[in-house]
């Protein structure tokens, strides 16, 4: 499989493309989900998405399921059926791969990882320090996934002029794996970001789009 979505739309009638977006509260998981689903929708696919609100906005782990194709029933991605896992936090990448990845899953992950806060030194407290380091996780993902993209989205966004657009960069990378026309992506971004930041967000998308390299 080259592109995630075949050129021939008819061939996709019975296939669901499953994109799992993950991160932590406040990183823009919901916004990214909106942009990706709108782009797929405008391209004519049937689509369902699902996200959990509520406690998640308080710094917890957040995920958004996006499924599109010929005809979609379940709004949730079945176990180990993610075509793509797009993650804004490398610890969250690690959290979701066991449940949703398979050997062919494309992993697009930020190299940023927010540590768990309020870890206590007190042995009686239940919250313990995590053992994994970011480099260890990146190494593990490289060894296990042929199409693993580790991106320094924060730095790229800072170079573009505003760290806030870092969540658009992985979407640009993801777009290479779809047959969704570039114009649909750009429109979807334009409609979902504040008017003043449209140009910067589009730049971030295009910068991400250049990042696929030869793994595609």
């Amino acid at each position: 499989m080259g592109a995630l979505i075949t050129k021939n739309f008819e061939n996709t009638q019975n296939i669901a493309y499953n994109i799992l977006i993950c991160g932590i509260g406040g990183q823009g998981v919901v916004l990214a989900g909106k942009i990706i689903s709108l782009a797929a929708f405008k391209n004519g696919f049937d689509i369902k998405t699902s996200e959990v609100h509520g406690m998640s906005q308080r710094g917890g782990s957040v995920s958004s399921h996006i499924r599109f194709g010929g005809k979609i029933f379940s709004p949730l991605i079945p176990k180990n059926k993610a075509s793509v896992i797009l993650s804004f936090d490398i610890y969250e990448t690690l959290r979701y791969i066991s449940e949703f990845a398979n050997d062919k899953t494309i992993i697009i992950s930020s190299d940023y990882g927010k540590m768990s806060s309020w870890i206590s030194k007190n042995k009686n407290d239940k919250i313990k320090k995590t053992a994994a380091g970011i480099a260890d996780i990146a190494g593990f993902l490289t060894n296990n996934f042929k199409r693993f993209h580790l991106i320094n989205d924060k730095k790229m966004a800072a170079d573009l002029g505003n760290i806030k657009v870092s969540n658009i960069i992985p979407i640009g990378l993801l777009s290479n794996y779809t047959d969704i026309a570039v114009e649909q992506w750009l429109k979807a971004i334009e409609e979902n970001v504040p008017e003043k930041t449209v140009d910067l967000n589009l730049k971030a998308f295009l910068a991400g789009r250049k990042e696929a390299g030869d793994k595609k």
Binding site: Y91, W118, A131, D136
Partner: peptide
């Protein structure tokens, strides 16, 4: 039961993220 992921013997643990006050 699923075990934590391991890489060359190293356990890769994900941090617990309890919901917290902002």
């Amino acid at each position: 039961a699923e075990m934590p992921l391991r890489d060359n013997g190293k356990i890769l643990e994900t941090p617990q993220r309890l919901p917290a006050l902002c």
